[in-house]
Amino acid sequence: MKKVFFVSLGFIVSLLFSIPAFAHFQMIYTPEIALEKGEKIDLKLVFTHPFEAGHTMDMGTPLEFFVVHKEKKTDLLDTLKPITWTSLTNSGKAFETSYKLRGMGDWVFCLVPAYYYDEGEGIYMQQITKMVVNTVGAPTDWDTEIGLPAEIVSLDKPYALWTGCVFRGIVKSAGKPVPFAEVEVEYMNHMPMMDKNAFAKEAKAEAPQDAFVTMGIKANAAGEFAFGIPKAGWWGFAALGVGPDTQHDGKELSQDAVIWIKAVDM
């Protein structure tokens, strides 16, 4: 009896530990990020595991949500509406909004989410996230350092990438490059369905092994990383624990920097 208990306990513990093997990713999603002209776009803010479309975490009310266009910052926090997002395994609290893009250039959407307590890991997480939308092909702000506590500064336009291109970024903590930063890369394998607030069941790719689900890469001595994009679609990059804050509410805090890119086939 005792043995059975221990074996099943061991199984449960190993299950618990296996969950964090897939990376958490804060998403800011809109279907198209390279637009012909200014238009109204719908945005979804979801904290999830994008490759598996797995466990979706409850988001608290974000601390900041804004957009930068032609160096001008516009606060969008009050425009957020709570929604429930359905993953393949559960549902979680998320947010949505819409925004009218007027004219041409880059719009850098920035999210500083509420602190999230991850019981599995016993730490707080805060994934500070950027997503860039462009209209007409005019570059204005995509390479600008916004000045977020943890930030990935793009060296390639996140919205103008063919499949096979390389995406490069600099990982920064309070404005300073982070040498050898640990960066997790994950493919958005199940497409978000905007009208259903859910992930599509159908997977676009299959991973032969867990190391391909969340790919761990590292920045170089100058805090720069590069990633060759093997497949069209959305890719998320998360530099882990790079922000200056390491404690929240008496517990360890991982302040991460996230950026999303979208590649298209030629």
Binding site: G103, M104, G105, A138, P139, T140
Partner: peptide
Amino acid sequence: ITCEGGFSDG
């Protein structure tokens, strides 16, 4: 009406 202009190199 308002028109914005620019070039692809910024």
